[in-house]
Amino acid sequence: MAKRKPTPEAAREALILDIAQRRFFIETLETRNRDRLDFHDVAVWAIRDALEEAFEAGRSTGTGAATQP
């Protein structure tokens, strides 16, 4: 059985979740309607690192989305 290539949207969501899990140790990005599950204390340097990683990932895919001010 042939595997289907994930859609660009699914690939993007998977990358965002992967960054959140590795950088912030967040299990899911789904809203769970519990403050202790939906809000996280995160260091500013961790936010910066995650944003830089996401920016570079976008740039490497050539989407051009990060070029807008």
Rank of each mutant, 00 (worst) to 15 (best):
M1T: 09
M1P: 07
A2K: 13
A2D: 10
A2I: 08
A2E: 12
K3Y: 12
R4E: 12
R4K: 14
R4W: 09
K5R: 14
K5Q: 13
K5C: 04
P6L: 09
P6Y: 09
P6N: 06
T7G: 10
T7Q: 06
T7R: 13
T7A: 12
T7S: 15
P8H: 13
P8V: 12
P8M: 12
P8Y: 15
E9G: 05
A10R: 15
A10T: 14
A10S: 14
A10N: 12
A11R: 11
A11Q: 12
R12Q: 13
R12F: 14
E13M: 12
A14S: 10
A14L: 02
A14G: 01
L15F: 14
L15K: 15
I16F: 15
I16K: 14
L17F: 02
L17C: 08
D18V: 00
I19S: 07
I19F: 15
I19H: 13
I19G: 05
A20P: 00
A20M: 09
Q21N: 10
R22T: 10
R22K: 14
F24H: 07
F25H: 13
F25S: 10
I26F: 12
I26L: 15
E27V: 05
E27I: 02
E27T: 08
E27D: 11
T28K: 12
T28G: 03
T28N: 06
E30V: 02
E30W: 04
T31Y: 07
T31A: 15
T31E: 14
R32K: 15
N33D: 03
N33V: 00
N33W: 07
N33T: 01
N33L: 05
R34E: 15
R34S: 09
R34I: 08
D35S: 06
D35V: 14
R36G: 00
R36W: 09
R36Y: 10
L37W: 02
D38L: 11
D38K: 10
F39K: 10
F39S: 01
H40K: 07
H40V: 08
H40L: 02
H40N: 03
H40D: 00
D41L: 11
D41V: 08
V42C: 06
V42L: 13
V42K: 01
A43G: 03
A43Q: 04
A43K: 06
V44W: 13
V44M: 11
W45G: 00
A46Y: 01
A46P: 01
I47W: 10
D49K: 03
D49M: 00
D49V: 00
A50K: 08
A50F: 13
L51I: 05
L51W: 09
E52Q: 12
E52T: 12
E52G: 02
E52V: 13
E53H: 01
E53F: 01
E53S: 03
E53M: 06
A54R: 02
A54K: 02
A54T: 00
E56V: 09
E56Y: 11
E56L: 13
E56I: 08
A57Y: 10
G58L: 02
G58A: 00
G58Q: 06
R59P: 03
R59I: 03
S60D: 10
T61W: 04
T61G: 04
T61R: 14
T63E: 04
G64C: 03
G64L: 03
G64H: 04
A65F: 15
A65R: 12
A65C: 07
A66K: 00
A66M: 09
A66G: 01
T67P: 00
Q68P: 00
Q68I: 03
P69A: 06
P69E: 07
P69Y: 08
P69D: 08
